[in-house]
């Protein structure tokens, strides 16, 4: 069976755009696209399938939407018969999109999700896609098939590249409402890939500690005050949110860090001198870094070093006694 080569003018009102059986692309900016069609015409007509008195779009959702936006009463289409095979229609939709532009992960996930119903496993899907000019290795097909059944908000995040594929897959372990809450958080804050990992891992752990879901955790006042604050821009919100999460996730460690920084301040080290704690305060070795550009500066730093060796705050830093750990358990 082949697509009808002849182009037919059909009533725009008879096209059911809400029927997304073959849709896996994003809507995008219809206004700009419509202007292009207004100027150059509809160069490549959409393919539609007859559905009794109406039609469903097989490929060309954006073109159809643009023509509707332009209030065209009739538009040219290639029409497939109502009994055309599902897989055949899907192949047309995939081939038409894959050959015109690079599809994003969300769109690829949408394709894989639809092919799961008619193909037998990742290797079969990968081979079929390759025959249509779309190269997705079987391991990635397997991952995309998992994303395909995730909540719309997560799939949108992957499609729009503000949720990494690995974080999306990690969200599988969360309850649906929590995955949606994290997707909403990332849509709002747009963290980097590393920050996404850090935030999800921190939220997951903190939820485990508190015995709450992530979605319930994000509604807590200490987070919602930051997330709902209108006076904060996105970058500031992200910074404050990560800081609050860290404080809640690592209460004793962040207290120890705050105590260290407070006491280090009291040492009044000069510019070019830095005192660094051991990672996570696990080791007992502290590091002093001296940067100098003259003998005089080094001499001055040596004097300060001599002084701080007797400083009570240095003694306290090294003794590392932290109060109030009992309250943590």
């Amino acid at each position: 069976m082949q697509a009808e080569q002849r182009v037919t003018e059909i009533e725009t009102d008879s096209i059911i755009l809400e029927d997304t059986c073959y849709r896996f692309t994003e809507q995008g900016n219809i206004e700009a696209f419509a202007e292009s069609i207004r100027g150059a015409g509809l160069i490549n007509p959409p393919v539609v399938q007859r559905r009794q008195e109406n039609f469903r779009v097989v490929t060309g959702f954006r073109r159809t939407a643009a023509c509707m936006y332009l209030k065209w009463r009739r538009m040219p289409c290639r029409v497939l018969a109502g009994d055309t095979d599902f897989l055949y229609c899907l192949k047309i939709a995939i081939a038409d999109n894959a050959l015109t532009r690079e599809l994003n992960l969300g769109e690829k996930s949408g394709i894989v999700g639809k092919l799961q119903a008619v193909c037998d496993g990742p290797h079969s899907i990968s081979a079929l896609l390759e025959s249509l000019g779309l190269f997705i290795a079987p391991p990635l097909v397997e991952k995309l098939s998992r994303v395909a059944v995730m909540p719309d908000s997560v799939r949108l995040g992957v499609a729009c590249n503000y949720i990494s594929l690995n974080v999306a897959l990690a969200l599988e372990s969360a309850a649906r409402d929590s995955a949606e809450a994290v997707a909403g958080l990332f849509a709002d804050l747009r963290p980097t890939v590393n920050q996404q990992q850090e935030i999800f891992s921190g939220l997951n752990d903190l939820a485990g500690i508190k015995g709450l879901s992530i979605s319930a955790l994000l509604k807590k006042k200490y987070f919602s005050d930051i997330l709902l604050c209108r006076d904060l821009d996105r970058g500031r919100k992200l910074k404050l949110f990560r800081l609050e999460l860290y404080r809640r996730r690592y209460p004793a460690l962040s207290r120890a860090e705050a105590e260290f920084y407070r006491r280090r301040q009291n040492l009044e080290l000069e510019e070019g001198m830095e005192l660094k704690p051991p990672a996570n305060f696990e080791d007992t070795e502290y590091t002093i870094i001296l940067k100098f550009s003259s003998e005089q500066q080094l001499s001055r730093q040596a004097e300060i070093l001599h002084e701080i060796c007797r400083h009570p705050d240095l003694k306290a830093i090294i003794s590392r006694e932290i109060e109030d750990t009992k309250s943590l358990y």
Partner: peptide, 26 residues
């Protein structure tokens, strides 16, 4: 099980351990 959810830090040997003051107190 909640045992993996606590204040674990990556220790010097790469393993996850309770933050040291918590271990000492325990």
């Amino acid at each position: 099980s909640k045992i993996i959810y606590h204040e674990f830090i990556r220790a010097m040997d790469g393993k996850m351990r309770y933050f040291k003051p918590l271990r000492i107190e325990m």
